[in-house]
């Protein structure tokens, strides 16, 4: 699989600093060179994506890891806005949340989330999941070339 020789861009939308740090730790061990940008809630995330679309702005993320329950603008709203946006709707969105409520799973897929993952309590499992996300989205599937 042909890859552009640049670090992969990941946007993590997560309000819990503990989870942010855990994700960062897991990414440190990742096989691929990656660039993790963190947005503390939906508003920051949308602002960041806005600057990406401006000329000379930072590159658009290749993948968005999105938490559901956040202050100000939650993951559901972010997902809804992303999926109606012409330039953003092709970015895969992974819902990464503590909620395992059936209603959250169903409504996320209905809003065109690309996958839904419940955060495990166990650290090893969490690491494994983050590595699986990276493996799946950046070595197995083929993403649109920007």
């Amino acid at each position: 699989m042909a890859r552009v020789n640049r670090p992969i861009e990941i946007l993590l939308v997560e309000d819990n600093p503990g989870d942010v740090r855990l994700t960062q730790e897991a990414m440190k061990d990742a096989k691929l060179l990656n660039n993790l940008t963190v947005a503390a809630d939906g508003v920051y995330a949308m602002d960041f994506l806005g600057t990406c679309l401006e000329p000379g702005g930072p590159p658009l993320p290749d993948l968005i890891l999105l938490d559901l329950n956040m202050p100000r603008m939650d993951g559901r709203e972010v997902l809804a806005e992303l999926k109606i946006h012409d330039k953003l709707k092709s970015i895969p969105v992974v819902i990464l949340t503590t909620s395992d409520a059936e209603i959250d799973v169903i409504s996320s897929y209905e809003a065109h989330a690309n996958c839904y993952i419940t955060k495990p309590v166990d650290l090893e499992q969490f690491m494994k999941i983050v590595r699986s996300i990276e493996d799946f989205w950046f070595t197995i599937v083929r993403l649109p070339v920007r």
């Binding site: 819990n16 503990g18 989870d19 855990l22 503590t98 495990p120 309590v121 166990d122 650290l123």
Partner: peptide, 9 residues
């Protein structure tokens, strides 16, 4: 999850 994960870390 924070307690468990960070203890493990």
């Amino acid at each position: 999850r924070m307690v468990g994960s960070y203890l493990q870390l």
